[in-house]
């Protein structure tokens, strides 16, 4: 057999081994490149999440500042004006006309009510006031305001010994609770609201249950009635910002439950 044939055969064998090794190396290289891509994508997701959190934090700070400004404006301007109007009504001389006198009395009552309502509104908007009262007292206060309307019964149950959370966390939780109450008042048509707070060594749990008409959560995530879905997503994002777990369960005709859980390591200032 000519030597050239031996060379060809040797070449073929070497080339085949080379192809097999090449196949093996292709797998290794592709696996390596893929793992780097995975790492890059993970890092990108972390950065995006961090950015979203910072953005949300900024939005919340702006919102709180705005609410504070509105609260001060209500107190300083509108409150003052109504107080002066009440004073003028009180200092009016008595009038013989019974019908007119009744109207003046009614007006005084309406102005008094407006002053009280505005004071209440100003307080619930005021960040400092909320942080001074503490979360539990602030929620009680909101429930009292709702009960005063006469349309919704409210109850609150507290389990465990109370402790304060970080001020920022209490404020964010309070705003979530306010938004939940607003949703119940505007959309649920509920007759009662029950709030349960549980303080334990391992966690802080806040549950709000209403007996309203409930909501189908499925289509909200698909874009229908975007404003409401957006509200729920905002509450979820705010809870996530402080490391809390936000859950919402609802069935049509059976009411809604909102549950917020803040675990150990996220709590401080136990009293």
């Amino acid at each position: 057999m000519p030597p050239q044939n031996y060379q060809i055969v040797t070449g073929v064998v070497i080339a085949t081994i080379a192809f097999l090794l090449a196949g093996f190396f292709i797998v290794i290289i592709i696996a390596y490149a893929n793992s780097r891509k995975k790492k890059f994508i993970e890092e990108k997701q972390i950065m995006q999440s961090k950015f979203q959190n910072e953005l949300l934090q900024t939005q919340l700070e702006i919102q709180e500042q705005t609410l504070k400004n509105i609260s001060q404006e209500i107190h300083d301007n509108i409150g003052q004006a109504l107080s002066l109007a009440k004073l003028n009504l009180n200092t009016m001389p008595a009038i013989n006309d019974e019908a007119l006198q009744q109207k003046i009395t009614n007006s005084k009552e309406l102005v008094s009510k407006a002053i009280i309502d505005l004071r209440d509104l100003s307080r619930s908007l005021d960040t400092d006031y909320v942080q001074e009262m503490g979360l539990q007292r602030a929620i009680e206060y909101e429930l009292e305001l709702i009960k005063k309307t006469g349309t919704i019964e409210t109850t609150m149950m507290v389990e465990g010994s109370m402790f304060r959370l970080e001020k920022q966390k209490e404020l964010i939780l309070f705003r979530i609770v306010q938004e939940t109450f607003n949703n119940i008042i505007k959309h649920a048509g509920a007759k009662s609201i029950n709030v349960n707070i549980n303080y334990s060594a391992k966690s802080f749990t806040l549950v709000i249950i209403d007996d309203g008409k409930g909501v189908n959560l499925q289509p909200l995530s698909e874009g229908e009635n975007n404003n409401f879905g957006l509200g729920i997503r905002n509450m979820h994002n705010r809870a996530k910002l402080i490391g809390a777990d936000f859950k919402m369960n609802s069935k049509i005709g059976e009411g809604t439950e909102v549950k917020i859980i803040l675990n150990e390591g996220n709590n401080e200032n136990k009293q």
Binding site: M1, N5, I8, V9, V12, A15, F19, A22, G23, I26
Partner: peptide, 26 residues
């Protein structure tokens, strides 16, 4: 992966098939 390795090897085999047969006969 399977197709790349087997196809590249096959090309080689069929191109040098006669030489490999002659080698076998020898």
């Amino acid at each position: 992966n399977g197709l790349i390795v087997s196809s590249m090897g096959s090309m080689l085999l069929y191109y040098f098939g006669d030489s490999l047969y002659a080698y076998y006969k020898e």
